[in-house]
Design a protein around this nucleic acid. Structure first.
Lengths: 115, 115
DNA sequence: TTATTATACCTAATTTGCTTATACATAAGA
DNA sequence: TCTTATGTATAAGCAAATTAGGTATAATAA
């Protein structure tokens, strides 16, 4: 588990990116996916997850549709056109930020290929 | 300039890492260094910088010594033994976190060399 | 059969790490 | 003389998370 300060700020980007992988996903599914892929090193808690999803909907970056599974209701989220653009932008920003961090903390000449 | 949310959480790690590069540094020097190396894409504002430095001192990760330059006083900060350990740990955590992010957001097989 | 775990959603109070703004002071350059 | 650079410091406020609670159904284990 990484310190909260580190994860904070990347969650919205992560959610947008994952939503872009599939046609639609629901909240619980997102949280499971993050937990599994990161081997629980990043955990999307509900208190963070749902408010972010609601904000994305309010900002029209996602649209929702409710689906019944047995007697339970799932709320699926899908990126809008704006959402797809935003997802790409945020991902690029994050990747650039990471590169900047490396330059800042390891200001060495970069080998083209280490093999 | 990256969004604040992204930078938030990495500042303490950055400061610890930079302090580890030299025997001692003062606040203003740190802020200039970050600005220069990142081409102003990351900016250490005073309101963030000094409280962090004070906290590091309180936590005994750094020690200070005042030096007079002309009529002005500089407050130099140097890592303690604990500070050096912490710097390494935090840097490793950050680098691991970045790798985890990549796995999470780009779960593809990784080419050994792209050239 | 009953207790626990997994599934599935939601929100309110609080914490926290920053921004924004302000303050003070010296030195250098326009 | 005015502005910019150097140098440190703190207080008010904000926003994204944590923590902790709530509701409800389904499946599994004891």
């Amino acid at each position: 588990m990484y310190s909260n300060e580190l994860v904070r700020g990347t969650l919205k980007t992560i959610i947008l990116q994952l939503l872009g992988e599939q046609d639609q996903m629901y909240g619980y599914e997102l949280s499971k996916l993050v937990k599994e892929r990161t081997k629980e090193k990043i955990v999307l808690t509900e208190g963070a997850l749902y408010p972010i999803l609601h904000k994305l909907e309010k900002d029209k970056l996602v649209v929702t549709n409710l689906e019944k599974v047995g007697n339970r209701t799932r709320k699926y989220y899908a990126l809008t056109s704006n959402g797809k653009t935003s997802a790409k932008e945020k991902k690029n920003e994050l990747l650039e930020f990471v590169e900047t961090l490396k330059v800042l903390m390891e200001p060495k000449p970069i080998a083209l290929c280490n093999y």
